[in-house]
């Protein structure tokens, strides 16, 4: 089949970008969206043009590297699917596809369809873990976890950190991503001791990064390739609220999130702003 791809091309973060239209003639319906871009790139290189930059690695929907908008939908039209697993048989011969990068202030563009998602790493670094150093763990069966809790924690932990939730949200909120980690760890008994402080730190960092606030629209769950449930945002809000009530004096007023590790500059923010 034959497709028209209208792709956002932008050389660097500071350059101005534009849509460029390409025609790909030899599209096989078994190809993935990324293989279709491979074919286009081979053509471009052979013609002496600059290939389209896009992020990818595992190509089986688990690493979270890939992702862009297809006709305005993050990861394209098929539910619960990343672009690397989206086969071309879901499109019609002759169709035009508009490909754009994730657009969000907290995901600065690097090139073409590639954006910088280090803000996600910084949200995790702010508190998305259980503080247990190597060697200090009790026997695995010393901590009993009800099956139902383990299953619910796993539902939330399935997040691949691709950023589709942010891209789909009209506010560019990272609530689904942040909530998924807060819910995963907060549900488990191992995560209880740090439950309050974790939510405060992660939410504060999320706000400092420039993600928008959540207004419960739910676009995020419509595009999430791992179908993370909306409840994780409720869990985040509850833990944040509970935490800021209990920990107000000790921690909240002293938090100073980092925003740019690479440059070493630290931005001071009011932890009560947003949310």
């Amino acid at each position: 089949m034959r497709l028209t791809l209208k792709i956002w091309r932008q050389q660097t973060r500071s350059a101005s970008g534009k849509f460029v239209t390409y025609s790909v003639d030899n599209v096989n319906s078994d190809m993935s969206m990324l293989e279709c871009l491979d074919v286009l790139n081979e053509q471009l290189i052979e013609n002496g043009d600059d290939p389209v930059a896009f992020e990818h690695d595992c190509r089986e929907g688990i690493c979270g590297s890939c992702g862009f908008m297809i006709n305005g939908i993050a990861h394209g039209p098929l539910p619960a699917t990343t672009v690397c697993q989206l086969t071309m048989r879901h499109f019609r011969d002759g169709q035009e596809l508009v490909l754009e990068p994730w657009r969000a202030k907290a995901f600065p563009l690097i090139k073409d369809l590639v954006v910088d998602r280090r803000s996600f790493d910084r949200i995790i670094a702010a508190g998305g873990y259980i503080s247990v150093s190597t060697g200090s763990a009790p026997d695995g069966n010393a901590i009993l976890v009800p099956k139902e809790s383990a299953d619910r924690a796993m539902d939330a932990a399935a997040c691949i950190g691709c950023g589709a939730c942010v891209a789909a949200c009209p506010n560019a909120s990272a609530a689904l991503f942040t909530g998924a980690k807060i819910a995963h760890l907060g549900i488990l008994p191992q995560g209880k001791p740090e439950r309050d402080i974790r939510a405060i730190r992660m939410v504060t960092q999320m706000n400092a990064e420039g993600f928008g606030g959540c207004t419960n629209i739910g676009e995020c769950i419509g595009v999430c390739p791992k179908e993370i449930p909306l409840e994780v945002i409720a869990a985040m809000n509850r833990d944040y609220f509970r935490g800021s009530w209990r920990e107000r004096d000790n921690v909240v007023t002293t938090l100073r999130p980092f925003t740019e590790w690479s440059t070493g500059s630290k931005l001071k923010v009011d932890p009560h702003s947003g949310n």
Partner: peptide
């Protein structure tokens, strides 16, 4: 055996029996 202990303590959601054991 130490690896499993460490990962459980970190919050890795391993599959469980109804009684809560791994």
């Amino acid at each position: 055996v130490n690896i499993i202990d460490q990962c459980v303590a970190q919050g890795v959601p391993f599959a469980r029996e109804y009684g809560g054991t791994l």
